[in-house]
């Protein structure tokens, strides 16, 4: 493990009515993947071993925050269809996102999340890498 590598991951933070997630990563692509992992953590998703399909996601938004909300809501839609994704690749070019995912059968889910929101959403880049806070409506 590289001790100089910036922290990468996510942490649930208190929010009165809903759920907020702090997400960290050394680069933007990993930030998006960590946010997706954080969402699956909140949902309490259990992924099965049955591979359903490979999907390609292509998104354009006004900014990175728009891409983040779009991606997370895309995953929520698939979760509602009993699928959970494993990222094969994810690329962000300016305000465009391209991702390939292997969709697995969802075998369980503990919590309902209605949506990822734009509430105070800002993706920050500093010396530590990238970080953001996402509020989910539950």
């Amino acid at each position: 493990m590289d001790a100089n590598r910036p922290f990468s991951g996510f942490a649930e933070v208190p929010h009165t009515a809903d759920i907020a997630l702090d997400v960290f990563a050394p680069n933007l692509e990993e930030l998006f993947i960590n946010a997706a992992k954080g969402l699956y953590h909140i949902l309490g998703i259990r992924k099965g071993t049955k591979e359903v399909e490979n999907i390609h996601i292509s998104m354009v938004a006004e900014d990175r925050e728009g891409l983040m909300v779009s991606l997370l809501n895309e995953l929520l839609f698939h979760a509602a269809n009993n699928q959970a994704g494993e990222f094969i690749s994810l690329e962000i070019n300016e305000y465009q996102l391209e991702a390939d995912l292997l969709m697995l059968e969802k075998t369980g889910q503990q919590k309902e999340v209605k949506a990822a929101t734009f509430n105070d959403l800002v993706i920050v880049q500093d010396a530590e890498g990238f970080h953001t806070r996402i509020v989910f409506d539950v």
Partner: peptide
């Protein structure tokens, strides 16, 4: 909410929180 991100700008509506679009 996604769609109105651009709509708010189209109508020159400036808001303190994007979730209010």
């Amino acid at each position: 909410v996604q769609k109105f991100q651009t709509v708010a700008r189209k109508y020159q509506i400036d808001l303190p929180d994007r979730e209010l679009v």
